[in-house]
Design a protein around this nucleic acid. Structure first.
Lengths: 188, 188
DNA sequence: CAATAACTGGACGATACGTCCAATATTTCG
DNA sequence: CGAAATATTGGACGTATCGTCCAGTTATTG
């Protein structure tokens, strides 16, 4: 695992960060329509070619711009019963949807649909791991007795987070408590 | 309610239909990126100005193109217990998501996000009525005893249809049975 | 026939796309 | 130090779409 000590001029970390942050800021502030590659290059103070050298499409760039920020945010709770950890994460996710992160997530998803017909690329790069990890926490909650529902963890995840996302997408007020009670079961 | 017998040349119903059908076909066949106003005008055999005269934005045009088709499809079941009617509708909705209609719906939603930041416009024009009607059926199912869950009908709707939509959006296989059991309750 | 309104066809400036190139900057290797 | 390798720059390119404008035509009513 030694570094091959690459020849030539190394890739500029500053430019990379500036590009990803500019893309994120444009999506958060002006929306997807204003987040053209040209606009990102201007805002980042970078040549357009530098972007095209490292990202094949706008879809790839915007996904990376989202990940650059989202990686640090929304940590998965590590302590407490399964139900507690899900409840805490749902509260954090629900708050995040109402912030820049929620706007940017929708913009990224829209770009994926426009280019590919679905947001499968976004799922593979980001959601799949989180969904698997949260399904694992749900399974632990079923094992420790804090989650009464006997449904498949992935189905519980889809009902809960799909319901939250649905309301966000269509501009409805979030209702995390109702969805939590329904999908975790017990208080029928 | 008498027709004012408008002066001047009347609006062409043929052009209107050609525009809406061309927009739908382009979204279903080539995706959102290929569904520019110019492309719709070419495919419909119509002047671009005719489109701009009747639709203020591409968002408005694509929503209407979707409604033009969706109105006839996906009727709300009228017979049977509440649970039966929901089950039947979920099966039809799930099948529709895998057809042209599902692709077009995603394209319309993506355009709404790109222009407005959310799909609230699509919700107001289409989903709000359906969600209200289906929540009513869910409430009837709770009253007739076929739906055991005591959760709010709107929460049941969001968990069920939000979960279905979530899986469609991210390219996952549909799981209507698991979501039905979970959200209608009973078989805990 | 006159008035009215829809529709056509083409043009416009602006912007974004994705690609190309020559010039310059930064690094490692001999 | 010089040579090779690679990143970055700045600008240009042809194509496409945007939204708007206008003059000309077509269809309908009074």
């Amino acid at each position: 695992m030694t570094l091959p000590a690459a020849r030539g001029r190394p890739r500029s970390a500053a430019s990379t960060a500036a590009i990803l942050e500019a893309a994120y800021a444009l999506m958060a502030g002006q929306g997807l329509a204003a987040s053209s590659i040209d606009a990102v290059a201007r805002a980042a103070g970078v040549s357009k070619m530098t972007i095209y050298k490292w990202w094949p499409t706008r879809e790839a760039l915007l996904i990376d711009a989202f990940l650059h920020r989202a990686a640090a945010l929304l940590p998965l709770p590590a302590e407490g019963s399964g139900a507690d950890r899900i409840r805490r994460h749902v509260a954090e996710y629900s708050a995040a949807l109402d912030s820049d992160l929620g706007r940017v997530q929708l913009a990224v998803i829209a770009e994926c649909i426009a280019r590919s017909g679905s947001a499968a690329a976004f799922f593979e790069r980001y959601l799949a791991q989180r969904r698997a990890a949260l399904a694992g926490i749900i399974a632990e909650g079923q094992a420790d007795g804090s989650i009464p529902s006997a449904a498949a963890p992935s189905a519980i995840y889809d009902a809960l987070y799909g319901g939250l996302f649905y309301r966000h997408l269509f501009g409805l007020a979030p209702q995390p408590a109702a969805l939590l009670a329904l999908s975790l079961g017990g208080a029928a």
